[in-house]
């Protein structure tokens, strides 16, 4: 049996009720289940989850589905999940599918009027 090449890894930074999940590398269909587990675990522990995509160089439609699914799961639990720092093709794909508008910082409540 051929072992699947590991093309990505992650790190979670903990700060009180906030978690930053930093992802690194190329994430595709073969990593989507593991990413789903990671996001669900993190959502269970926090009130705010930021998924830092700065160092992610590839995602596919299965990962888009995982991110959208995690967003729904977080919203159901009253957890705020946002995507931050997406760049390059990852950012372009999130923008063109409208997912960045849904899961990006623009989802934050507008600042109070002064």
């Amino acid at each position: 049996m051929v072992a699947t090449e590991q093309t990505w890894h992650w790190r979670v930074d903990v700060c009180a009720d906030r978690r930053v999940v930093a992802l690194f590398g190329e994430i595709d269909m073969s990593g989507a289940d593991r990413l789903d587990d990671l996001l669900h675990e993190t959502i269970a522990q926090a009130g705010t989850v930021e998924v830092d995509l700065e160092r992610v160089t590839f995602i596919d439609s299965t990962v888009l589905s995982t991110l959208v699914g995690a967003h729904h799961h977080a919203t159901d639990r009253g957890v705020d999940l946002t995507l931050v720092n997406a760049a390059g093709q990852v950012r372009r794909v999130l923008d063109m599918t409208g997912i960045m508008q849904l899961l990006g910082r623009m989802a934050d409540p507008p600042p109070a009027a002064i």
Partner: peptide, 18 residues
């Protein structure tokens, strides 16, 4: 076709086309 942003799935062929 492009699904709405909140829909899970069905983006693969749309991406391939775009």
């Amino acid at each position: 076709a492009l699904p709405s942003p909140g829909e899970v799935g069905h983006r693969g062929l749309w991406l391939a086309q775009q």
